[in-house]
Simulated assay, not measured.
Amino acid sequence: MLMLSWPACVAAALAGVLLDQWLGEPRRWHPLVGFGRLAAALERRLNRFHANPSTAIVRRLSGLLAWSLMVLVPAALAWWLVAAASHWHAALGLVLHALALYAALGARSLHQHIAPIAEALARGDLGAARTLTARIVSRDTADADAEALARAACESALENGNDAIFGALFWFLVGGAPAVIAFRLANTLDAMWGYRTHRLRDFGWAAARLDDLLNLAPARLTALSYALLGATTQALRCWRTQAPAWSSPNAGPVMAAGAGAVGVALGGPACYHGEIEFRPPLGAGVAPDAARIMACLRLVRRTLWLWLALAVASALALTIIPPLSAT
């Protein structure tokens, strides 16, 4: 990892996670808000050929250029800032690493957005549950029943556990601040540009494919962690048999293993833009409800502490073993 020993890397990771648990998302001046506005403006500037079917390759190259400007340039800037800070004082570099991870994580916000849906469903307030669910998913919720809302919340908790927590933590442990910033920005661009609409199908191709690539390893580690911390045999079976049916190479394993781990049946029909989309089944067991939403959130939280415990144990081992071997 950039300019950090493994024990220092783990210490920075712990600091970043604790900051997220303590502070949560910034309520004002969130850096991703400004990033999103800049990305939208750049897309309007570079994606000028969406009405011309003969320029697909131009649109893809434009999208790749836009992705590079929005991801690689900030990552390079982060590398330079951390290098300069570490040269001035090692502790300052450590602080910048931890702050970068804090900015990329969304563990507390994930719970804050999804737990209220479970609470609304538990007290039978369908209107509040629909409003809260609409804030975190792209599917239509205006006429959704309690089971459909609970299904959306469970799927969002499991999938975003990887996107908002474990993918960021994985890349931080691999490459520190530059890597975690690159991952988070790439994930944000996929959420903005990675749609198969007429306008974005080609321009957003690079954003979607590169996000898939960056998530290949963390998604599978997340799925394995979900399985180990729940109904292991069932989770692994769901992963093996159900994930290949999903179009996303990463969401499928994560959600199938997570649903199997907590014993809930997900997938099935969902309404998008007024049309019903029938999706492959996920998991096994009971229909989703408020209790299963909270079970999914607990699974995500246990996975986070498992990853941190393994990182700390490995750092301690590296700290203790060299002195022992020297004797």
Score class of each variant (00 low, 15 high):
residue 96 L to I: 08
residue 117 I to D: 07
residue 128 A to G: 14
residue 191 A to E: 09
residue 91 A to C: 12
residue 77 L to H: 02
residue 75 A to S: 13
residue 118 A to C: 12
residue 134 A to P: 02
residue 187 N to M: 12
residue 112 Q to D: 15
residue 140 D to Y: 02
residue 140 D to T: 01
residue 102 Y to T: 10
residue 119 E to N: 07
residue 191 A to H: 05
residue 65 L to W: 01
residue 126 L to T: 11
residue 91 A to Q: 13
residue 77 L to D: 07
residue 135 R to S: 14
residue 149 L to F: 03
residue 171 W to N: 11
residue 100 A to S: 15
residue 127 G to N: 14
residue 82 V to M: 07
residue 63 G to M: 01
residue 143 D to F: 06
residue 176 G to E: 08
residue 137 V to E: 11
residue 174 V to K: 04
residue 82 V to R: 03
residue 157 A to H: 06
residue 115 A to I: 02
residue 180 V to S: 11
residue 95 V to R: 11
residue 125 D to E: 14
residue 151 R to E: 05
residue 126 L to Y: 01
residue 63 G to S: 07
residue 155 E to N: 09
residue 98 A to I: 01
residue 126 L to S: 13
residue 182 A to T: 00
residue 104 A to N: 12
residue 150 A to E: 12
residue 117 I to K: 08
residue 119 E to P: 00
residue 166 F to C: 05
residue 64 L to F: 15
residue 125 D to W: 09
residue 135 R to I: 00
residue 128 A to H: 05
residue 80 W to E: 14
residue 86 S to L: 02
residue 186 A to W: 01
residue 165 I to R: 02
residue 154 C to F: 07
residue 105 L to V: 04
residue 186 A to N: 11
residue 100 A to V: 08
residue 72 L to K: 00
residue 71 V to M: 08
residue 132 L to P: 05
residue 117 I to Y: 07
residue 182 A to H: 02
residue 154 C to Y: 07
residue 116 P to L: 07
residue 155 E to T: 03
residue 121 L to W: 01
residue 135 R to W: 02
residue 146 A to P: 00
residue 187 N to H: 09
residue 103 A to N: 09
residue 163 D to N: 10
residue 135 R to T: 02
residue 155 E to P: 08
residue 168 A to V: 02
residue 72 L to N: 00
residue 79 W to Y: 14
residue 90 A to I: 01
residue 154 C to H: 09
residue 188 T to N: 13
residue 153 A to I: 01
residue 150 A to G: 14
residue 169 L to P: 03
residue 168 A to G: 06
residue 68 S to N: 07
residue 116 P to K: 08
residue 113 H to N: 10
residue 157 A to R: 05
residue 87 H to C: 14
residue 115 A to L: 13
residue 88 W to T: 13
residue 97 H to T: 06
residue 167 G to S: 10
residue 120 A to K: 04
residue 129 A to F: 04
residue 160 N to L: 05
residue 71 V to A: 12
residue 67 W to R: 03
residue 108 R to L: 14
residue 143 D to I: 03
residue 188 T to R: 12
residue 178 P to N: 10
residue 168 A to N: 05
residue 149 L to C: 08
residue 179 A to W: 00
residue 117 I to F: 05
residue 191 A to T: 06
residue 143 D to C: 13
residue 167 G to A: 10
residue 145 D to P: 09
residue 107 A to Y: 06
residue 78 A to N: 09
residue 135 R to V: 00
residue 67 W to M: 04
residue 85 A to N: 11
residue 157 A to F: 08
residue 102 Y to W: 15
residue 76 A to L: 14
residue 135 R to G: 10
residue 154 C to D: 10
residue 77 L to I: 11
residue 188 T to D: 12
residue 156 S to Q: 06
residue 135 R to D: 13
residue 82 V to C: 15
residue 106 G to H: 03
residue 101 L to T: 05
residue 134 A to I: 02
residue 108 R to T: 07
residue 76 A to G: 14
residue 108 R to I: 05
residue 170 F to C: 13
residue 168 A to E: 04
residue 88 W to R: 14
